[in-house]
């Protein structure tokens, strides 16, 4: 029963897929093949990300993370958050489990949001790709706007959200 509840969203998407297949077989089959492709991508990128977060969780002491990225880490914490997010590989949904470990380790909330922002948009491997596909001025202009942008978004978000709510999010991370 519990399993059914946990997987209800996935089961819902399976039903949607079946409906799509019935309505339009061609589009449905294409959807299946894209899904297969994404599953392969997930199987490829996700295992190392989770192993890394397991190692991070066990080996890096909370004090170290707090010193470099916690409250009072200042500019150093911001730079580290941008860098860590930017060297990342893998889709955005891989960033959230890592963010949860960061929360457990006492990383400052805005730094976590900056990390998520950097992972979403200033990833270096993607930047190189963008450079070759869309040109130097497009890619560098976007990068130069995005870095201050994600920092700004992080601070605006943290003023939106009450201390209470942030605490709840941190507590939730402990159970992940």
């Amino acid at each position: 029963m519990n399993l059914l509840k946990r997987y209800r969203f996935f089961i819902g998407t399976i039903l949607l897929m079946i409906i799509l297949l019935i309505m339009n077989q061609q589009v449905g089959l294409k959807a299946l093949s894209v899904t297969g492709y994404s599953l392969k991508e997930m199987a490829l990128v996700i295992p190392p990300i989770f192993i890394l977060l397991g190692l991070l969780d066990i080996w890096v002491p909370r004090e170290t993370m707090m010193k470099y990225m916690g409250e009072g880490s200042g500019v150093k914490g911001i730079i580290l958050a941008v860098l860590l997010g930017s060297v990342a590989a893998g889709p955005l949904y891989g960033a959230f489990p890592i963010a949860a470990v960061f929360m457990k380790k006492g990383v400052k909330f805005t730094n976590i949001l900056i990390f998520i922002g950097a992972w979403s948009t200033t990833k270096m491997p993607m930047f190189l790709f963008e450079l070759s596909a869309l040109g130097v001025s497009f890619a560098t202009t976007r990068l130069l706007i995005d870095i201050p942008g994600i920092i700004l978004i992080a601070y605006v978000l943290s003023t939106f959200i009450s201390k209470d709510e942030i605490n709840k999010i941190y507590q939730n991370a402990e159970t992940m």
């Binding site: 998407t13 093949s33 994404s38 190692l55 949904y93 470990v101 992940m176």
Partner: peptide, 22 residues
């Protein structure tokens, strides 16, 4: 820990991947 974290979020991952495909 790695496995637990993965297993925990797997249902959402699978659902998202299906949505992306469609």
């Amino acid at each position: 820990k790695a496995w637990k974290a993965f297993e925990n979020i797997l249902p959402q991952f699978l659902g998202v991947i299906m949505l992306v495909g469609m």
